[in-house]
Design a protein around this nucleic acid. Structure first.
Lengths: 191, 191
DNA sequence: CTTTGCCTAACGAATGTTCGTTTATGACTT
DNA sequence: AAGTCATAAACGAACATTCGTTAGGCAAAG
């Protein structure tokens, strides 16, 4: 990936987020890059190539992160803490790409779509394992593992909807608050 | 809204969910309805009309529900319980429309998009108020209200991604589990 | 002299929509 | 009962526009 490719890719990602993949035309991307539409084809094989690169590069980042966490022998609570922080970090550092990764992957054609779903499932499995272990270790409540995993991830993923880099809160702060919320819930402990 | 209009609207909603608004063409919708594309214009003024009807009808349902809850004078925990149940109920009873309501509203043109966002904010405010009151009443932890609201709603909204009507769990069951999770979190209370 | 990046021009296909017309159904009038 | 009208629903054909993409060439840099 040349630096020019990366440049154009990021421009495309911003538009995919703003308008959605289908509604963001090649001409839109070209205009945002101050270039004629045809010029993009010197760098990418086509529109879907831009989506493909985005989805799979992000998938790799997320997967690497969770596998690193699960390779370390800590207890479930510590691993969950690390996993949440890593997730929020990747997400806030690649805000546009993360949005596309989460919401626009379905526009991939086969067989890439199926391959992508496979990677995504492996990532979810990483979180599922942590919750599972946490219950076994007696640290976590005996919740429905599937629902808990999805709820956990959805809380994290919704960040792409509202997080702004110019906001008051940094990624670390948000990760801490979310982790606290997920772990202890809303209800105040009786005194 | 005639019965035929409702019929066609639901067909369109299913396609908007499956492919996204931009990628679902009028010809796709017509084919799914066993009708020529032009025939749709006897019932709707255009493609965006289908999106508009979906978004605003759902907005009204959600808004009515939260305002009913907040008009009743109960404590915050009870109100939150009712709000969560209502939200999950509306969502599972209108699965396709809810998906469109959440993910595709940005394809509305102005001024309808701004009007929609206004309604959406009012709905979020309803939840925000409950959390705020809960903290005042000493029932809830002193969390960041904005983040707690968004996290809460995101947990609920992600249901549209994985809920299937043929699944083992009913809406009530899921609402209960989510409510429990939100209220008490993952961590087990020390014995 | 080859490579890199971008250009102009154009392609066929798909897009949302409009037009005038036709068919079927049911109600009201004679 | 027969004839008239209104309405709803769908049709086939065509519209201008936009879509992703390709072909071939031009200029600057290594």
């Amino acid at each position: 990936m040349t630096s020019r490719q990366l440049e154009l890719l990021q421009i495309a990602q911003a538009l995919f987020k703003e308008k959605g993949y289908a509604a963001a035309s090649v001409r839109d991307i070209a205009k945002a890059a101050n270039v004629e539409p045809a010029s993009l084809y010197s760098h990418f094989s086509g529109k879907e190539d831009l989506l493909d690169a985005t989805c799979f590069e992000m998938a790799e980042k997320f997967l690497t992160a969770i596998e690193e966490v699960n390779d370390i022998y800590f207890n479930a609570e510590q691993r969950l803490h690390m996993a949440v922080h890593n997730h929020v970090k990747i997400l806030t550092e690649n805000l546009n790409a993360s949005y596309v990764f989460q919401r626009e992957w379905r526009h991939l054609g086969e067989p890439r779509k199926s391959e992508f779903i496979e990677l995504r499932n492996r990532y979810e499995d990483g979180f599922r394992k942590i919750i599972e272990n946490g219950i076994e270790e007696g640290l976590f409540n005996e919740v429905d593992i599937k629902i808990a995993t999805l709820t956990l991830l959805s809380s994290l993923n919704w960040i792409v909807e509202w997080y702004r880099t110019d906001g008051a809160k940094g990624a670390e702060q948000i990760a801490d608050q979310l982790y606290g919320f997920i772990l202890t819930g809303l209800r105040k402990d009786p005194l």
